[in-house]
């Protein structure tokens, strides 16, 4: 619940860089993420915030930098230098990735229960009844009625698909979750429900998360710390409420003053 102030960071990112041709995706991005901490990355479209997340998850290949991750077994790895098999294994076990569009993170051709059970089976769970039991348990936690377990995600609303994607990722109790606009495109009431759910899961499971969002109100409610990005660079970082209530950098001030009551 309350991490001691002097253990080690879970993730230490240094000099992360990615170019798309002449265009900078992100430049020299660095931060530490501590156990139990939620880091928000905010900025407008094109600021590079999603590029950072994509470099971490390996969805795009970074041009440079280091991403030191402290594994559950105590060893440290540079995530950018893992081979493909090791990276995929990490993403299936200790990490989870929640995409902005739930369809990208779900398998649309199999049932809700299979979507949640898949990660467990990938980790070696074989007992059908137990996998189904865990899947049911997680559907309940994300407030999806158990009668829907055999339905295809296609038949779910956008908000339900997003919650299913979260269940699919969290069923294996990852230590780190990367989320790209997890509440984007949802109705306000559904957003609130999802925020409540995410906050509860972060507290109960003690997981760490990096959340990319353009919504400063979402960032305020979920993140302990914020990075403000612009043009691929981090222009400001600090405690969430300090960055939002007393931003220092001209662009951060502009961003905060441009929205209604963040």
């Amino acid at each position: 619940m309350s991490p001691a102030p002097d253990d080690h960071p879970l993730l230490a990112v240094r000099g992360l860089a990615k170019r798309y041709g002449a265009q900078a995706g992100c430049l020299d991005v660095g931060f530490d993420l501590w156990p139990g901490e939620v880091l928000g990355i905010v900025g407008e479209s094109g600021s590079g915030k999603t590029t950072v997340l994509d470099c971490l998850s390996g969805r795009v290949t970074a041009d440079g930098g280091r991403v030191a991750y402290a594994k559950a077994d105590g060893s440290a790895v540079d995530v950018l230098r893992l081979d493909e098999a090791a990276r995929r294994r990490l993403l299936r076990t200790e990490w989870g990735v929640v995409h902005q569009h739930a369809r990208e993170g779900l398998r649309m051709g199999v049932s809700a229960g299979a979507n949640v059970g898949e990660r467990l089976m990938a980790l070696g769970a074989r007992h059908y009844g137990r996998v189904r039991g865990r899947a049911l348990d997680w559907l309940a936690r994300v407030e999806i009625d158990e009668s829907r377990i055999d339905d295809l995600p296609e038949t779910f609303s956008g908000g339900m698909q997003q919650r299913l994607q979260i269940a699919r990722n969290l069923v294996t109790e990852p230590r780190l979750v990367l989320m790209d606009e997890p509440t984007g495109g949802l109705d306000v009431s559904v957003q609130a429900r999802l925020l409540d759910l995410l906050r509860g899961l972060v507290e109960d499971l003690g997981l760490s998360a990096v959340i990319v969002t353009h919504d400063l109100a979402v960032a305020r409610l979920l993140a302990h710390r914020l990075l403000v990005m612009r043009g691929g660079e981090v222009v400001e970082s600090g405690l969430t409420d300090q960055v939002l209530d007393d931003p220092q950098h001209p662009y951060a001030q502009f961003l905060v003053s441009s929205v209604l009551q963040p």
Binding site: R193, D196, R220, L239
Partner: peptide, 25 residues
Amino acid sequence: PRLVLDVRRHTLGYVSQFLRVIPRV
């Protein structure tokens, strides 16, 4: 920031004039 949060969690309480909470809680 981590130390500031730890101080806020255990030592320093602050009654502000604004209530900011996650809707629905």
